[in-house]
Amino acid sequence: MDSMRLSDMREGQRATIVRIGGSGPLRRRILEMGILKGTEIRVEKYAPLRDPLEIVVKGSHLSLRVEEAAQITVEKVR
């Protein structure tokens, strides 16, 4: 399948969240912001220094660091 890390996605690509790794508060905070398994997201852009990145979840724009995005496994939507 097209499983990959969120941090490996390119600008403009869409994906569905498959798994959120990591542990503790960070993981829960990601979930609480509405980044959940099965949610569709779009990578809006990377910051000029390639970190952090901006994603669109259910119409709202969120930013997270590349190291945080690396914990999130997604499946690309074509």
Binding site: R29, I30, H61, L62, S63, L64, R65
Partner: peptide, 12 residues
């Protein structure tokens, strides 16, 4: 301690 996660909203 971990610095605050950067999960931050970019509000309209």
């Amino acid at each position: 301690g971990a610095d605050a996660p950067f999960v931050m909203e970019l509000p309209p």
